[in-house]
Structure formats: structure tokens, C-alpha cells
Design a protein around this nucleic acid. Structure first.
Lengths: 343, 343
DNA sequence: TACCTTTGTTTAAACGTTTAAGCAAATATA
DNA sequence: TATATTTGCTTAAACGTTTAAACAAAGGTA
């Protein structure tokens, strides 16, 4: 019942030439006559020939497949990065395999195994939040497969990295809040063990010092930055003896949770408490009040990550010239923190 | 420089046995002694052996890869479907390759070619909005590769399909609006050529008849259902001689656009105009007022789609017993349409 | 004429597996 | 004891390509 697929040999038989000639004709080899090439292409068309990737990849040692690992795809940031990686790589004849870790270390390891097993030519990844053991990533490196990290990276791995300047973003945010008259700025941060969140925390504390604001331990919290985390941490901040007059949340989802709590408590935003998120997810512009956030240049990150990979395949000599690209983030000021225009 | 990878032969050489024995040992073949199996596994571990998918897939004719085509991944619906497809298939030893069509027919065709080229064992797809030419999908069928459609399907293709009951969902919505006292219900619909949107439109008109409401042509519009489309269509409806007192939008993003316009015009929701969306995207629960919407059972759809595929691989005889699974959708009533509880 | 090049092709091996078939040794059966 | 069965392996072919090497024929050069 199952249709058997047309191979290069079937084409060869029709034309009474060798399979090798067909292969070369299809690859436009200069040593094949135009007559033969035209005939081959014609027959290939007629027989609905579909090249077998498995065979060619096995023989040539190049799969032309690139694995992409993201914590999840249902965020605008990751989905946009992926789209741009794909765009750049498709042009160069590469296809991508997307896998989601769902922020799980175990799933991430499985994904890596699958990708290695599938013989991808390279891996572009953003690490799960809970990932601390880097051995799975070391494995990629040890196999000599190009590895590029973006957003959630790790210095210790010593691989290419594309991301935004998290440290400086915190400075931008604090500065913006100070300019809006805030004096007691809290930070609902991510876990310090994740490099980007650590950088945001460092940026936050250093910026406070710079502006000679009190560095109050109870104003700095760590969490997984889910909506629920945002709610819980906001409630905690509100119950302090002296609550903050501004909250900088290291992720938009948690910022949304915080916003919900503030609205439920009828606290005026930004007058009583100003709010800033991170990531510029579309919903920050949809809710009331619209949330100030940081745009992470997903388009640029995607393109740069793809290009970083392409650099590896272009050169045969792997002279490990590391690329660390840090882009400047952009603060998108909206109602939730802008006291000046809301007057 | 490039590390060369360990193969089955390397393991064989170490143990002075044949490659075939190693292959069988790794597959736990009953004809291999436990002693050998243990030894093989040990050496495989030591040499960091990684099976080569290309070789085994080529030889066995089964890639254990399933292609998934979606219009986009940055919607909660598709991302959730994907996650559940993956979950079910992983358990059975399959991995998935995700591709996005970005609602483009051309990109969809490219994706299909890539997937066929990659020798996937099956394809699970949701069609792009603009797709009308089905030849690319016919190609999949003609190669004898299992094809399962979900959400955005096509009856003419005669393949398995999993989706919700769009026609009936419209009835639920209209009924709900009628119960809330609405008498002039508009529909901002998708393009009629897409089956699901056509069904929603049919459901809308039939439900109006059923409740003896006027079927006004100017209250029914078609569009691509982007946020901007929602804005434009809402503005049009407001400029009518007698504007509607309820608007049923066939997609949440367009519903959001409509909501923005209503808020800008200071129109009371739901008192003056009630609003209902479709898809139950997370943001419907985040905005003010929260938008009533239809939950599409993404979890169930993902699982069922994966199982539909698995049915094909389990049986060798392809006795084309078609699965058409239509799930009941669920109306999630929120502030934007609920006049009773908002009193 | 003899030799070199170019053109267009074929041959054969290789990529890393799987698997049908074969076979020797050990064990069971009669 | 002779024969059958089971156990545990080996051999070799195959999957569909690519590619290095070989080579015949045609054309060019000295």
C-alpha cells in the first residue's frame, strides 16, 4: 500500500546513466553536460523525486539542521528570536529544530540529547531558569558542535553569547524612577543564580548607591517571576512598615501580578507606587495602566545568534574567537511609571 | 581539531566483537548475552557513544520524527497544543520538529518540503489563514505520510482532524448575549474561506435566526483578526446609524483592538456594548474589563492529535479509518459581557 | 605523430546503522 | 548416542546519498 519513494537510482535507470551522474546533475556540478542536467531535472520532476536528507546528511556529515532550545515559545520575546533565527538560517540553506525546555533542567537535557542524536550542525540555546549543572552543555562543546547562547547564558561555559545589557538596564530604570521623584525603590528580582537576573540585581543595587538611595534588604526579593510570584511579592512589599514608592520587577509576568494586587488594593499607579516591568511583552501595552518595560531587541538577538552560528560553518579552522555581543536595551516608558505626563 | 565521534564500530573494536553484536546489545536483543550487554553499555558510556540518528533512520526507514506546522508559536493556544503533542509523542520515542508558517502560504509550502526532506514519519498541522491551494498537503498524502490537521483544517483533504465545535460555539455566545439582554449583536469575523471562521459565521447567523434577531448585513464583517483589524472594524460598527449593543469577535486579538476603541470612546462595557472574544488567550483575563472568551481545549487537542498520529504507526495496514474529533468548546464568561454580575 | 587537457561520465567506496541469514557451540530431547 | 533446539555471535548486504579516483573520448598543443 505504501508508495515507495523515488530515489536517485530510479532517475538513473530511466536515463541509462549512473546514480553518481544524477547526483552531480542535481547539484549543478560543472562536469555534467547541460543536456544531462536538463534531462535529469525533467525526470526528477516527473517522478516527483524528493531528496532524502538522511542519506545525504549521513554521507556528507552535514545535516544542515540547527537546534534551538528555548525555555518556552509562548512568549513574544522567544518566539520573535526564533522567527529571526529561522529567517537568517533559511537563507543559507539551514533549517531549525525548535525544542522547549519548559524551564525544566531535565527536559533541557533530553532536548540536548535529541538534538545531538539528530546530528544537528549547531545549537542555539537560552537556558532554563533552574539550570545550574552545565554538563549537558559541556557535552555539546566536547562533541565539537558550535554552541551559541542568548539571553539566558553562562559565562563559565565560554561560548558565544548574545544578549542585552542587563546591568545597565537596571540603571536606566532606577534613573527613570528617580527622575519621577521616587525615593524608595523595591526590586522583585529573579533568582540570583541566573546570570541575567543577577546582573539586574547588581545593576539595581549599584544604581541605588549612585543616586544615594537607601539600600534596604527588605526591598529586594528573588522569585521565579510568575504572575503568582509577582502577586505574592507585591503583597509582601505592601505589608512592610514603610512600603516602597516604586517597584521594579525583573519580568513582565510578575509585573502583571504586582499590578493586579495594586489595583485590587486601590493603590494609585504611578502616583502612590510606580511600576516597571522587563521584557516588553505585548500585554504590557494592553493592560490598564500600561506598564513601563524594557525592550530586549529580540529581532537583533535572533539575527546575531544565527550569524554567530554561520561564522562557525564558514571557517574550517575553528580558531575559537569568541563572540560576546551585548546590546543596549531600551526603556519603553508608559503610564505605570510616568508621573510627569500623567499630570 | 574536530573531535571525531564514537561509532558502534569503535565499541566493537574495544570488545573484539562485531558491530552487529553491539547494535543488538544496545537494543537489548534477546539473543545477546547479559555479559556482552553489560560490557557494551559500559564501553559505550566510557567512549561517550552517541547513536547517529541519520544512520539508523536511513537504514530502518523510520525517522521517529514528527513535523508540526503552526501559523505561529507566540499564541497560547498553539504553544499549548505543541507542548501536549510533544508530551505524548516523547513517551513513544518520537521527537517533533516545529515549523511556523507565519500565516504565509509560501512559508507553509517550504515547511512541508523541509519536513518531507527530513523524512518525518508524520505531519501534524494547522493551516495558515491564506492557504487555499491544497496541493502541498496533497503531496504529503501522496507520499503515504500520515497527516493530521487541527484547528485550521479542511474537509476536502479528507484527513484526520481535531478541533472544537466552532458552529456551536457561536450559538453559545449569541445565547449568552441574548440572556444578557442584547438585541443587536454584531460579528467581527475571520475570512469565510477559512473553514473555522466560516463555521463561526454560520453559527452566528443561525443563532440570530433562532432567537429571532434581525440579521443585518452591516453587522457582519470579515478580516484577518489582528489587533488593528479589530480597531478598524469596531470603529466602522460605531459609525453605523444604529450601532450594535454587543460585538462578538472571532479572535481575541481583534477583540482587544475593539476593546481599546470602546475605551477610547468612553463607551461603557458591557452596559452600552457587550464584548466577546474567541480563544481564551491569557491576556483576555489581564485587561480591564476582562474579556469573555471561548476556551479551545488546547491540551485535549494536542493530545488527541498526537494519538491520531500514533494510530497510524501502530497498524501496518493503512485502512484509512478517518478520525474527525470535534470537541465542545467552553464559554468563559467575564466582565466584558456579564451585565448581571456587574450590577 | 605523440602527448597533454578538458569534458563527461562511471566505478566503487564510504557514511553509521540495522537486520536477514548463517553458523558454531552449548544444551535439550529422544 | 544421535538429533533437535537454543544461545550467542558473525557475515554481509542494505538504506540513499556523495565523492574521490579512474577512465574513455574528444579536442588542443608542439
Amino acid at each position: 500500500m505504501k508508495k515507495k519513494k523515488t530515489t536517485i537510482k530510479d532517475i538513473a535507470n530511466v536515463l541509462h546513466i549512473s546514480a553518481a551522474a544524477v547526483s552531480k546533475a542535481l547539484h549543478d556540478d560543472s562536469r555534467i553536460s547541460d543536456k544531462t542536467k536538463i534531462a535529469v531535472r525533467q525526470v526528477a520532476e516527473n517522478l516527483q523525486y524528493q531528496p532524502n536528507h538522511l542519506a545525504s546528511a549521513l554521507r556528507s556529515g552535514k545535516s544542515h539542521l540547527v537546534g534551538v532550545i528555548v525555555p518556552r515559545t509562548n512568549s513574544n520575546f522567544f518566539s520573535s528570536v526564533i522567527q529571526n533565527i529561522e529567517e537568517v538560517l533559511n537563507k543559507k540553506g539551514y533549517n531549525i529544530i525548535i525544542t522547549q525546555s519548559n524551564e525544566s533542567y531535565q527536559k533541557e537535557c533530553d532536548s540536548i540529547d535529541t538534538l545531538l542524536y539528530t546530528q544537528v550542525d549547531g545549537i542555539i540555546a537560552s537556558m532554563a531558569n533552574e539550570t545550574v549543572d552545565l554538563s549537558a552543555y559541556e557535552k555539546i562543546k566536547s562533541k565539537g558542535i558550535p554552541l551559541i547562547l542568548f539571553d539566558r547564558g553562562e559565562n563559565d561555559l565560554n561560548v558565544d553569547y548574545i544578549g542585552i545589557d542587563d546591568y545597565n538596564s537596571s540603571h536606566l530604570i532606577v534613573e527613570h524612577l528617580v527622575n519621577n521623584g521616587c525615593k524608595r525603590i523595591a526590586h522583585i528580582g529573579g533568582y540570583k543564580r541566573t546570570r541575567i537576573f543577577n546582573n539586574r540585581i547588581r545593576g539595581y543595587t549599584d544604581a541605588l548607591k549612585k543616586h544615594q538611595l537607601p539600600l534596604d534588604e527588605e526591598l529586594l526579593t528573588e522569585s521565579g517571576l510568575t504572575i503568582e510570584d509577582g502577586r505574592v511579592k507585591m503583597l509582601e512589599l505592601l505589608s512592610l512598615a514603610t512600603p516602597p514608592d516604586a517597584v521594579y520587577v525583573a519580568g513582565d509576568h510578575a509585573a502583571l501580578g504586582a499590578l493586579q494586587v495594586l489595583k485590587e488594593k486601590n493603590i494609585k499607579i504611578p502616583e502612590e507606587i510606580a511600576l516597571v516591568g522587563f521584557g516588553n511583552e505585548p500585554f504590557t501595552d494592553m493592560v490598564t495602566p500600561r506598564i513601563t518595560s524594557v525592550h530586549q531587541h529580540s529581532v537583533e538577538i535572533g539575527k546575531q545568534a544565527a550569524n554567530a552560528f554561520l561564522k562557525y560553518v564558514d571557517r574550517d579552522t575553528i580558531d575559537q574567537q569568541l563572540n560576546k555581543i551585548i546590546l543596549d536595551a531600551k526603556l519603553i516608558v508608559r503610564d505605570s511609571s510616568n508621573k510627569k505626563t500623567s499630570l
